[in-house]
Nucleic acid binder design. Structure first.
Lengths: 213, 213
DNA sequence: ACGCGAACATACTCGGCAGTATGTCCTCGC
DNA sequence: GCGAGGACATACTGCCGAGTATGTTCGCGT
C-alpha cells in the first residue's frame, strides 16, 4: 500500500515546485475553516499526502501561515501596487490599481482572504516573541501597499483629478469595498477571465464615483 | 413613537442579566482570537469565572457563537434596518441606514465582527446537521437585512434619487465599505459619541457619492 | 426552617492536534 | 553502482480543550 501511493505520486508529477502546492493547499484550507480550525492533517489530506510532507517544507503551522500571508501581499504589490507609478492622472492610476486589486481578490481568493485573518492575529494575537517579529515585517509590507493608495489619493487631490478628502479614510473605505469582494465572490462554473474583468470594471465604476472630482 | 415605557423592574441591580455578560465576553473573545482559537475557559477567564458559568447559560460552544451572531443581526436590524421605511427619497433613507450601520460597527464592534466570521462558517463549515439548520436561519436573517439595502437601491433608481445600478452589486460594494469599518476601527481614549457620528458622516459622504444620481 | 432549584465551582474524561523521531524510496553526483 | 541527501510516509508523544458529572452556595416560596 505505501509502495502504491509513492508510485502514483512519483508518476504524475514532473516537478512543478512541490512546495508551492503545499502552500496553495494551506491557503485553501485556512480560508475555508480558518487558521486555528485547520489542522496540519487537513492540509495534508487536501494534497492526498500526510503531515510528513507539510512539515518537510514548513517548520511549523504559524510559519506556514506566514508564508501564505507573505505570498498574498506579494501578489497584490506585483499586480496592483505597480500601477501607482504609471501614466495619466491620479484618478486613472487609482482606477487601474483598484481594478487589478479586485481581480486579485477573485483569482487568488484563498490567499487574499488570509491576509485579513493575519491582521487580526496581529492586533490581538498572543504569539511567541519570535513570531511577533516576522508578523511585524508582514504588517509593514501590508502597510506599504496601503500607502500606495494613500499617496494616490493625495496625488489626486493635488492634480485636481479627485476630491480633497482625508487620504487615510478614503483609502480605508475604498479598500473596504474592494477587499470585500474576496468575501462574497465565488467563482461560477465556466467563468472566463473576461467575465471577471467586466465585473471588476462595474465595481470600480460604482466605487470610485465618490472620490472623483 | 410608541414609547411603551412601563415601569419594568425599577432596579435591575438585583439581576443585571448575568447571561448577557457571558454573551458579551464571548463576543469579545471570539473577535480577538477567532472562534476556534477561543476556548470556553478563555470566555470564563474574561469573566473572572469558570466554565461552569458559561455552560450553565449556553449548552455548547457553537450555540454560544450562534447567539452572538443572532444578537449582532438584531442590533443591525433595530438600528439601521428600520430606516428603510422612513421619510424622504431613497437616497436619504439609504444615507440614514448607512450611517446607523457604521455606528453599529464602531459601538458594537465585538458582535459585528463575528457576523463576518459566521458567514464563513456557513459557506464552508462542516457542522452537524442540527447546527446547520439554525445556521441557515441566521443566514436568512442576515440576507433579510441585506435585502433592505437591495430594495433601497432599487427604489433609488425608481424615484430618480440614485443611479440605476445592479442593486445586488451596489449593496455588496456599499456594505463592503462600511462593514470594513469594524475591521480597522479601534476606539480611542476619551472618544465621545459625537466624534463617532462625525466620522460616520464623513464615511457616508465618501462612500455614497458613487451611487447618487 | 426546610426543601428546592437556580447559579455557579471543581474535578474529572477523552478525543484531537502540533510536533517529533524514525523509517523508506528515489535521485543524483561521482 | 554507491553513498548521501532530498522528499516524503509511519508511528509515536504530550498537551490542550470541549464536554460532563458532581458538588456547593444562596435566595425564595411556603
Amino acid at each position: 500500500m505505501p509502495a502504491d501511493m509513492q508510485a502514483t505520486a512519483a508518476n504524475d508529477l514532473i516537478s512543478p515546485d512541490r512546495r508551492e502546492e503545499v502552500l496553495a493547499a494551506a491557503a485553501e484550507c485556512f480560508m475555508r475553516r480558518g487558521y486555528e480550525a485547520t489542522s496540519m492533517d487537513d492540509v495534508a489530506d487536501a494534497l492526498g499526502a500526510t503531515k510528513g510532507r507539510v512539515y518537510h517544507h514548513f517548520r511549523s503551522k504559524p510559519e506556514l501561515f506566514f508564508e501564505v500571508f507573505r505570498r498574498a501581499i506579494f501578489i497584490l504589490i506585483r499586480e496592483a501596487g505597480v500601477h501607482e507609478t504609471g501614466p495619466g492622472h491620479a484618478a486613472d492610476r487609482l482606477r487601474r490599481m483598484a481594478r487589478a486589486h479586485i481581480l486579485c481578490m477573485m483569482e487568488t481568493q484563498a490567499f487574499q482572504r488570509n491576509l485579513t485573518l493575519g491582521v487580526d492575529l496581529y492586533r490581538f494575537g498572543e504569539t511567541s516573541e519570535e513570531h511577533k517579529a516576522t508578523l511585524e515585517d508582514l504588517m509593514n509590507l501590508r502597510r506599504g501597499y496601503e500607502d500606495a493608495f494613500r499617496r494616490t489619493f493625495a496625488a489626486g487631490a493635488a492634480d485636481g483629478s479627485m476630491k480633497a478628502l482625508d487620504p487615510s479614510l478614503a483609502m480605508r473605505t475604498l479598500l473596504g469595498a474592494i477587499n470585500w469582494v474576496a468575501v462574497w465572490y465565488s467563482p461560477r462554473a465556466g467563468e472566463t477571465r473576461a467575465h471577471r474583468e467586466k465585473l471588476a470594471e462595474e465595481i470600480v465604476a460604482q466605487v470610485l464615483g465618490g472620490y472623483l472630482a
